[in-house]
Write a protein that binds this DNA or RNA. Sequence first.
DNA 1: TGTCCACAGGAAATACGGGGGT
DNA 2: ACCCCCGTATTTCCTGTGGACA
Length: 415
Amino acid sequence: METSHIKKKVFDEMENVASHDIIMNARYLNDEQLIHSEQLQVLEEIFNANVRSEEMTQLSRHFAPILKGNHPTHLALWGKTGTGKTLTMRFFMGILAEMCKKKKIPLRLEHLNLATARPCFRALNDLACLLNASKKYQKGISLEEMMIRIETKLAKFSGYLILFVDEVDNVRRDKDNFMTFLVRRLPQRIPAKLVLVFVSNRLDWPEHLDPRVKSFLKLNELIFEPYDAIDLQHILRIRVEKALHPKAVEPGVIEKIAAMASREHGDARRAVALLGKSAYLAEKAGTKITLGLVDRAATELDQDRYLMLLRSAPPQLQAAMGAVVEATRQSEHGTIGTGEAYDAYRMFCKRAELRPLTGRAFGDLISELDIYSLLRSRVLSRGRYGRTREIILDLPRELVDKIYSGIQLNFEMHD
DNA sequence: TGTCCACAGGAAATACGGGGGT
DNA sequence: ACCCCCGTATTTCCTGTGGACA
């Protein structure tokens, strides 16, 4: 009987906390935690609110030929991150699959998501895995072999094959190989009617592509504009409804988040993340979500991005960043040149028992940090005193401190 | 006007380590 | 076990350069 008493106590306690909670269902604040049917449900509500309806119409038109047995052309979807390209397409594919099933049209949909940057080899390998044609390889197998495996796997399917290649621009270096394979070689070697759908974050993506491939891509383009504040409000309202306590949101909060997000990037995912962070802060503070809290959440989210980025970065990059921080602290004027940075880096490596790279490689590390905007650098000629990169840390001091201590934790600093 | 600093940044070479074939 | 192929990371080698200084 003792145990049931404890059980009741725990239960009451949890119930009590839950009733004060702001977050009722945290999963709806993070798409990755949603199971497929929940995602579709959210999507449906979003589309019912007339968001992205224009794009849906265009997609319908583009794929309409399938129902009549014709072959649609390839398709390209362009737009910045978080403008709903992937979701819209997936939602549409779901509908299309349903229709084809009813009409008994053989259709196969594959979604190849190249979420992170990878070379041609990895991309092909991922495709092969997706089609169950091969296992995961690191290296060691020729590109040719990989292509052949993909082809043989598809040899017996002769319906419509829609290959949805998400974030194609992540194929770097020898992307021509990859594209040539998909656009020219694959359609010739498999019986299926292949429709390629490319999604890219960058409008200029086809510019630096083999012209022969480009001409074969008789692309139908569909551009996704960033969400405007009204769209974002719809999206946020749905999340609030599903995830939060109805009384927990002060008036104006949704409008504010939507306005901030649309002004800065129009990225729905980040808008939802901001909502989530605000709710989390509110819960910790034991208050409603206020406008002030939203501001705090925004800056914290911003800082978290940098910290996460660095934490998962290769050690050499972290060392370079650490060295830049140290060197900047020593020099009064706040800017340093490549030489100073490299010296600091060598010392840092010594302390961290890390093999230092050459100056050439170090230069590349600096430009990588620049790309992530962890620092700013520009080449500067000091005349008689040579040419150098001027390196500036223009992040808030507080953030720099956090970054630096984060880096130190990742190394066994041996004085 | 020419020199020359202190690097930038491109290209080619080399090192490395996983993986297949035999 | 051995050798070869592959992609990736790093090194080596190299040419280029804006402008202060003489």
